[in-house]
Design a protein around this nucleic acid. Structure first.
Lengths: 212, 212
DNA sequence: ACCGCCCTTAAACCTCCGTATGGTTTCGGG
DNA sequence: CCCGAAACCATACGGAGGTTTAAGGGCGGT
């Protein structure tokens, strides 16, 4: 907690992936000029190989690269558990390509040459999107962690409680006595750190719990 | 209820807006060939003027038109309370234009000439999006209608109930007796047709009710 | 002036929730 | 073999939720 404090608000890194070394350095310089940390890779494979940390940031990727193209790269990121917002750029792109990229969730798609400001705006939007996703994600992660400490029965009870059933109904459904449900229910509230039933219902919503 | 039955599942209409009469008719023919109703307008203004019904469907609009351009049209639709998914097409578009359109929520952006199948795929996606929005919307609309029948006090009570406060706490906050809260609370449950507190919490979530 | 709606409260009563306290069984691991 | 975790159940009590009945004040519209 003393070191590596506040991971959510850590300085974001703009990751440039382009096979053109000159452009890489130019972009890195641009980002550093506005106090943004920048990292550069010559190919998608390089990035995937080097990837260790997963701090906040975004990707700036050329679509036309030897090996994995930017579009394929974009498609494969999710498989690697990487959800960084991506900005694509191209020197020889066309409309279908840009539309495909945007449909796939790219933050922006810039045709070269572009103005520095356009790139900075795109990066700004991408970083904002990443922050938003991370905050939403860490909250959900805490919930999931708590949910995993529940036993099987407790999960069943939680599902039916948050569905609005009364203890006696749940008891009937599970062929148990009402008092047993109360016990499980109390355990659920404690383990999930829910202050009220309303709280628990919202947690169930966030976790996507739909009773059978 | 006897006439105009099942508005949510009514046949969708593809609305073509283009100043080129030949293309309009060609597209209308294409859509009708796959059993889709089609309507055509020569300009954005024509469409906005003629707009009476608001059944399900989508828009297919040329970006380059005399008067209101497709992109501006897209931006103005929300002001008119029209939320139809929009597909843009262009003969002389560029990448920034397509990116701007996609960022603004266009379903697709097709460069002419395009294959019929591409257009049909885009329309199919757009109609699916419209259906999804409508079902989500009608559910919410029913909730809002119910919520509007609540009196001021009932809304205050609902907000605090769904925030997880106990009756006595709410009574303290509002400087009322606990029994009064119970009455309001019961009224809220009846008016909102909530079967359980869990139900009510979910309704409050959907309505975006955040207590002060 | 009267009616209807909203807001308020009280008393009484019942159900439901929550939490002990105490005890059971089963099952897997040290 | 004993221990802990998980699951089960009973009795009992206090607190919270929910409804009914009864009743009064304020306010706007007919």
């Amino acid at each position: 907690m003393t070191r590596n404090a506040a991971p959510a608000t850590a300085a974001p890194t703009v990751i440039v992936v382009d096979d053109d070394a000159d452009l890489r350095e130019a972009l890195a310089g641009l980002f550093r000029s506005v106090d943004l940390a920048a990292a550069t890779y010559a190919s998608a494979a390089d990035f995937l190989a080097a990837r260790r940390t997963d701090g906040p940031g975004c990707l700036v990727v050329d679509v036309r690269m030897p090996g994995l193209s930017g579009l394929d790269f974009q498609a494969q990121l999710a498989d690697h558990g990487i959800h960084l917002p991506i900005i694509l750029m191209t020197g020889h792109g066309d409309i279908p390509m840009s539309v495909r990229a945007m449909k796939a969730g790219a933050v922006d798609f810039l045709a070269k040459p572009f103005r520095d400001q356009d790139m900075l705006d795109a990066v700004s939007a991408a970083l904002a999107r990443d922050v938003e996703r991370r905050t939403r994600d860490t909250g959900l992660q805490a919930l999931r962690t708590a949910y995993e400490t529940l036993t099987g029965r407790e999960r069943e009870v939680m599902a039916q409680v948050t569905a609005g059933l009364m203890n006696k109904q749940i008891a009937g459904n599970l062929n148990l006595s009402e008092i047993t449900i109360k016990i499980h229910r109390g355990n659920v509230m404690k383990k999930m750190a829910a202050r009220s039933l309303a709280d628990l219902v919202r947690m169930a919503e966030a976790l996507g719990i739909n009773q059978t």
